[in-house]
Design a protein around this nucleic acid. Sequence first.
DNA 1: TGCCAGGCCCTCTTTAGGGCCTT
Length: 208
Amino acid sequence: MGKYSVLVIDFETTGLSPDNGDRAIEIGAVLIQNNHISDRFQSLINPKMRVSSFIADYTGITNQMLKKAPPADEVMHRFVDFMADHHLVAHNASFDKRFLDSELKRIRASRKQEFACSMLISRRIYPDAPSHSLQSIIQYREIQTNGQFHRALADAEMTALLWINMINDLKATYGLSSVPFELLQKISRMSKSLVPKYLKRVVEERAG
DNA sequence: TGCCAGGCCCTCTTTAGGGCCTT
């Protein structure tokens, strides 16, 4: 695994909580290598339960579409191979982490690598943005979209472009030559006011 | 029938409450 490979993932689900019985209905993932998108994964997932009209309206994914979709165990086994040991990223990662771990547990698999959250990072490096929802922050940074949101691959792709954009902005603002996953993960756990000082110190330490 | 998430973050804070995010 390269130091700079990151897998951005996104789930569409039947609801907000796997602990309350909610299931994944679509998974999308985009691989970033050397700061560019290099591979993609997408599949609908048959949750073996009906989705509410709210979810059908929100995602555009209907019960009819899901009836023909492959079951979760089949999709998740394929995804485990794709996921390999890449670092993981998601927008509001605590949500996707819960569903990933829940679906992995059902196939007796587990995740070894860590997550970073693009929303927590964007709150720190774009503190003046009016909102840090994925759609808002994409518009705020004027990132090109195809207009599709709330589908797994489209949202994973938008999150990947946001991730690349944040790295490029940090390089431009602080003169950093590289911005590895671990640095962004550390920023995401840091108090907002400490981030600029910390990044300046990183630049100084790298200069030796 | 009745239940209905969870983590982060700010503030009128820590003996708490509520908005933001994700579907």
